[in-house]
Design a protein around this nucleic acid. Sequence first.
DNA 1: CACCGGTTTATTTTT
DNA 2: TAAACCGGTG
Length: 720
Amino acid sequence: MEKVLENLNEMQQKAVLTTEGPVMAIAGAGSGKTSVLTRRIAHLIENLGIPHENILAITFTNKAAQEMKERIGALLKISTRNMWISTFHSMCARILREHSELLGYDKHFQIIDDDDTLQMIKSIMKQANMDIKLINPNQLKTHLLNVKQDPNLIEAYQEPLKEYLRKIYPIYQKKLKENNLMDFEDLLLLTIELLKNYENVRNHFHKMFQYVLVDEFQDTNNVQYNLIKLLVNRNQNVFIVGDEDQSIYAFRGANIQNIKNFSKDYNDVETILLEQNYRSTNTILDAANQIIKGNKNRIKKNLYSTKGDGEKITFFKAYSGRDEVEYVAESIRSLSQNGYGYKDIAVLYRANSMSRLFEEVFMQKQLPYKIYGNTSFFKRKEIKDMVAYLRLIINPHDNYAYMRVVNEPKRGIGAKTVDTLSVHAEEAGISLYDMVNDANNPLKPSPSKKLKAFNALLDLLSSHFDQLDFNQFIDDLLDKTGYFEALKSDDKGDVRYENILELKTMLKESEKTYLEADKRELLMYVLEDIALKSQEEQEEDYEGVALMTLHAAKGLEFKVVFIVGVEQGMFPLYRSLDNAKEIEEERRLMYVGVTRAEELLYFTNAKQRQHYGDLVMHPDSMFIKEIKPELLKLEGLNREREQTSSRYTQEYRQTKTFKAKQSNLKNYKQNDLNKGDKVEHKAFGVGVVVSVVKDQCVIAFSKEHGLKTLMKDHPAIKKL
DNA sequence: CACCGGTTTATTTTT
DNA sequence: TAAACCGGTG
């Protein structure tokens, strides 16, 4: 009993021990909700003797699920591998693998991601002669996925979007099913259909899941809400944790109201407030509280901490976007000299586009950093291509995988040929693969020959698949398809090949994990993992500054946090400015950002910056003004403004740039570099100058580093 | 069918 | 600014 309750405060203990009936824990930022969830599960298993398979826990990300499993495993010294601790989508996939045949899907169904959906939409629009200029496919995708969550929404749309949605929705669904594909929303919707329509299945899961826990409840959408309702049995042992102030995913259907609905839809809900914060100083918490107060209609919370007041919050206003980044970099450098590790520090921005400048400057200054959540590994072209080939091994009739790689690498099968083929296959009601093999297919001899060769290639690969292990198979695939050959003439070929090697490593791992499964079964699970865990595993111990969006920072904490670009128009974004609801979501995002910080918090912005090609000037973010001035320490242009007029600012700017140049001259040895010169770089080794343009040059280093664009006078470069 | 070059358009994103 | 996309040309 002790170890389960160890170090928990009174409210946390109550949340752990109140196991019967519906319970809602309102957990403020940093109030230890993950501990509560893990301890509660531990309590059920260890103290109440509940078998682990009778517990279902749902998290927001795979990472959170993984962490929870690890913590429970460590606490109870048990294997958590088969426990039902997962995301909504993984849980649904697990259920559907057993029962999808009832719904008319083969159990080897494949899961597709948003990019695949976009490709499908493009292809459908083309076939149906829909005007891409009138409605952009990307936009249509976003709205289609929303409509899937709630078909009633379609009525609220304006023409012509409405007509397009009406038209495309049923076709899209039909295509998915024909190709034995499910998108993310299908996983949820089909599970709901299954539970609704099949009493025996429902009873089975009701009997099984005696205790249900849901994390991040404020970010559930309506479909997920309904799914929980269907899963929870009549005992209503359901525990939800959430914080409406941290709901930041409304743009993809999250509904804060679900927290309020919960009290209505379940009987005698016990509400527990977790208000003690274990993360931040009071200065930081006060700022957070002052900001979030601006939102109407929220349950008032009073976060408090015992960590003392700590330092004031620094607010630095730079002259330009670049100056802002320089300031952040310099501050990080001095923090690192004052006992902070690089990985204690995070730079948070509203939009990914902000990351570029930081990356550039950090690289030049040799500050170690790690950008999180950029194009995910599994979204990269070469990986998607490999996955498409693997999908075809499981199901050669998967037309979308077929279309993706039929001319990848180039085999002289162009769009026109594929179009014709699609039309005929559609008419005949068979797959592209079958249409190609069809004796009386109407294609011209030359394309037909090429397509037949492609089919033969697929057959060959498929026959090899059973005899080879995964790694050998990928090599075989690269060879037989000519993919490897094509990489050689691709200027990003090296990186691409490395990514494929990475995929091989992953496949090898899975081979070990699912040892007993049959080969194709195994591949199916691997592809499922790839589809559902779109986020690349991060090296946890990497010693570098974390650069990420505010969204990506949710659930994380850092000793030092920089929130950058705090300007009206950047954060909050332009598009939200005239919409009260969206401003509230932006405010919650700011709240999330602020509450990530444990000890030091910085806001930075720039008086003017380059944005989409032109120079813009933004006023300070409204959220800054919502913080009481006594919590802030003003730096940079902020100071001058207090003291004098704008003329001073002008001078400040001149002295500043002048100073920067001076110091450059003093510290950095001028490199008089010319094309063809040999140089040595601290990190990249010896290289040859390829070109020099103004103060920048392109240098070719050894193969592993390749071409780099660097500042000519950078101290890391030495002319040989 | 592939490639070049002009035009268009810019959130947030896990699953 | 930069990347993605379209349309025309070779």
